[in-house]
């Protein structure tokens, strides 16, 4: 059965394996040094955050500004467990515990707030992320504003790859499942979905919790690579940064979030050396992309072999549509 699945997704599987092997070889031979490694870490974390937020914002249509809050839950839980148990097992336990707790927080927050819509939901999620941040600021176990120092470093390329691939596969499969289609129907028209007998709150909370789960994983990876955590890192701007990935990539496109996550990580890392003009260039890049691609880099399309094939057929399908329109009229 597994073979069957691999066969059906041959291109996807092949590209995953190829990515892993190529990067691993380049790290092994030293072509990619520590500096490039830190860029890769940023890329993977960006991708996980972008894809998981896209499930909430892009596919379910719930405008959330609180993703950094869930990320911080994962980061702190992973860091605290990992500092007690300084081993790979502790790291993995930390990541999973962080993700599960983040998902639970997602459910807790989602049940009351997801009854709100649009702007109201955005404000409510923003507020909850701030509550989480203030909580970490005042708890003893998180060391308050001083932050956690000396977190052991276990995040490396194989783990990054496994968690990133896991995120993409899980969310892709969720969206292609009947639950996923339900979520999309909520985005398209909530009232219509409700009248079809769909429990919209349930599915919204489900999407929210899954998004929070993977944000927690991203937080754990972050904590375990950058040695140091403090509540300021997960402020309002971090949530905006994640939202930028989703909007830039295209609402409702997983491949869009992946491309945008990679793109933004490379741009920020590359611009470090141009201190004076850094923020100007960064903003200009965003503005230009938004002017030429207001629907995001990928719109709501996915990057697949079909995508290439449809390029050639573009004109034909346009003709076909025109013909259809004629027939209808």
């Amino acid at each position: 059965m597994i073979l069957d699945i691999i066969k059906r997704n041959s291109v996807f599987t092949l590209s995953l394996i190829l990515t892993f092997v190529v990067v691993q070889l380049m790290l092994f031979t030293g072509i990619l040094n520590d500096y490039y490694m830190s860029a890769i870490v940023l890329i993977c974390i960006n991708v996980i955050l972008g894809v998981s937020l896209n499930l909430v914002v892009g596919f379910t249509g719930q405008f959330s500004l609180g993703h950094a809050g869930f990320m911080s839950v994962g980061a702190y839980v992973c860091a605290i467990i990992n500092m007690q148990m300084d081993s790979t097992a502790g790291f993995l336990l930390g990541i999973f515990a962080g993700a599960v707790i983040a998902a639970l927080v997602g459910v807790l927050i989602g049940i009351p707030t997801l009854r709100l819509r649009g702007d109201y939901l955005a404000i409510a999620t923003l507020g909850t992320a701030e509550i989480i941040r203030i909580l970490f600021l005042n708890l003893d176990i998180t060391n308050g504003a001083v932050g956690l120092n000396g977190i052991p470093q276990y995040t490396n390329w194989p783990w990054l790859f496994i968690f990133t691939a896991l995120t993409i596969i899980c969310i892709r499969n969720f969206i292609n499942s009947s639950h996923g289609r339900t979520c999309i129907s909520i985005r398209e028209d909530e009232i219509a979905a409700e009248s079809m007998g769909i429990n919209t709150t349930k599915y919204k909370v489900m999407a929210f919790a899954i998004g929070a789960f993977f944000a927690g994983i991203a937080g754990g990876l972050y904590a375990s690579y950058f040695y140091f955590l403090k509540p300021d890192i997960f402020g309002f701007m971090k949530s905006i940064d994640i939202l930028v990935i989703v909007v830039l990539g295209g609402l409702g496109s997983i491949s869009g979030s992946i491309i945008a996550g990679i793109f933004l990580a490379i741009v920020t890392t590359y611009l470090q050396q141009f201190a004076a003009v850094r923020m100007i260039i960064y903003s200009l890049v965003l503005i230009i992309v938004m002017i030429f691609r207001p629907q995001g880099l990928m719109g709501n399309k996915e990057f697949s072999m079909k995508f290439f094939k449809s390029f050639g057929k573009k004109e034909n399908s346009w003709l076909a549509r025109k013909r259809n329109a004629k027939i209808k009229s």
């Binding site: 520590d34 500096y35 830190s38 940023l42 972050y222 950058f226 140091f228 955590l229 890192i233 470090q272």
Partner: peptide
């Protein structure tokens, strides 16, 4: 902090 880490690297 994360940018400081990657920049010093």
């Amino acid at each position: 902090p994360a940018e400081a880490t990657s920049l010093s690297t």
